[in-house]
Amino acid sequence: MKAADFAYRRPADLAGALAILSAEEGDIAPLAGGQSLMPMMNFRIAQPTMLLDLADVAELRGVTAGPDGLRIGAMTRYVQLAADPLVTQGAPLIGLALPHIAHAAIRNRGTIGGSVALADPAAEMPALLLAMAARIELVSLSGRRVVAADDFFLGLYETARAPDELVAAIHIPADASRRRVGFYELARRHGDYAMAGVALTAGGATGQPLASPRIAFFGLSDRAVRATGAEAALKDAQPAGDTLGAAVDSLSALPINGDLHAPPDVKLKLAGVVLRRALAGM
């Protein structure tokens, strides 16, 4: 199918974009890479009255590194993340996961900000941000605010972003460059959305006990979810034997939904599998 009709605006800068977002009536959809929005519009699952194309908003692009870590502009594309040593060194978890996010042609246009704003329950990026304790910077005409990833993803395609706000940037804490990282997902075809996946970070040297592990699953629930039970079970421990078994058992407390691929009991089983495999690589 084809998208229903809409109005199209392509502001030259951030001030212009925010002015449209706060002043215009109707359902305004910011357009980033279009790699989720366009399919939804072609299927008429989404019928925004106006597209606000962010292509020319230079303020939303670029990666900078500072003492507090990285600031990744919302309009940074996956392909740019993969090629930027600031990202692959400052956020190695992102580097590890990127090849699993969609296909090359999708990564050429899809953006980090679009994935965060969309909050697809099967998307990798929200889980990566939870596992790194990242923060999301929002901007509107009334100013800027920064929300922890833990407080940002609220439910199915639901976030803490208000309709007059744009996702401006993602902040990755400085310790993300030093923490150990793990990632594993199961998908039917490479690049498809995962049936179950996990992202984790922990302190301590390879082979040592996991210090302050942060574990986030995707593809299980209505959103990316922290597995606090598994974090508690693995804290300051070696991920092996009974400890690992207890961490896997704790996953039954997660709010798991079935989908087209698998019912909840299969998803729970897969969650244990991906956790074991992700930990084996750390």
Partner: peptide, 13 residues
């Protein structure tokens, strides 16, 4: 210079 889905990009873009 980058592969793109022609169905997910508008002509106006």
């Amino acid at each position: 210079g980058a592969t793109t889905r022609g169905c997910l990009m508008l002509a106006v873009q």
